[in-house]
């Protein structure tokens, strides 16, 4: 499954145009008029309009330009690589929101070392432990920036 560059150009420009539309809509709720100077929504409204204009011109340019039709944005194999890298990051965020950043990074490191990099189980475990320890010392001890602990660490009395 290949995605052509032109498809992606148009899709992206449509997405930015949609964002522009949302910005315009949001701005109308603050008033977009001019009463001895701009109302709060005045600038956002025209910013939204410019986003839409820029996106539309990009779409027109893409459609009119025929030289690079064959360009591929990404092919199936590369897409799988990128997704396989990105999904665990989303899982990391989900777990971190629920059980705290330290638990999240430990599980994520273990997964990345064991599954993606293909190390043996105890090497992966060891790496995860080191990552957590190093981050704990850097953030909690040296810079005194507390990271999200989550219920498990709090159960053990670590705040």
């Amino acid at each position: 499954m290949d995605i052509s560059r032109n498809t992606m150009e148009v899709a992206t420009a449509c997405a930015t145009a949609a964002v522009g539309g949302i910005v315009c809509y949001g701005a109308t709720q603050n008033g977009i008029g001019w009463n001895d100077g701009p109302e709060p929504g005045y600038f956002p409204f025209y910013i939204g309009c410019l986003i839409i204009v820029g996106s539309l011109v990009t779409i027109v340019q893409t459609v009119l330009r025929r030289t690079s039709v064959a360009d591929i944005f990404i092919d199936g194999e590369r897409l799988r690589t990128v997704v396989a890298f990105f999904l665990p990051i989303m899982a990391l965020t989900l777990v971190s929101a629920w059980l705290g950043l330290y638990v999240g990074m430990a599980l994520y490191t273990f997964y990345a070392m064991r599954v993606s990099a293909g190390f043996r189980t105890h090497t992966a475990l060891f790496t995860a432990a080191i990552v957590v320890a190093v981050n704990f010392v850097i953030f909690e001890k040296i810079f005194m920036v507390p990271l999200l602990k989550g219920p498990i660490l709090e159960y053990f009395g670590i705040y």
Binding site: F85, P88, L92, M105, Y108
Partner: peptide, 16 residues
């Protein structure tokens, strides 16, 4: 595959 996840963790912590 080893360096990438480490950078990811740094970014996630940084964002938090």
């Amino acid at each position: 595959t080893v360096v990438g996840p480490m950078i990811t963790i740094v970014c996630v912590i940084g964002a938090y």
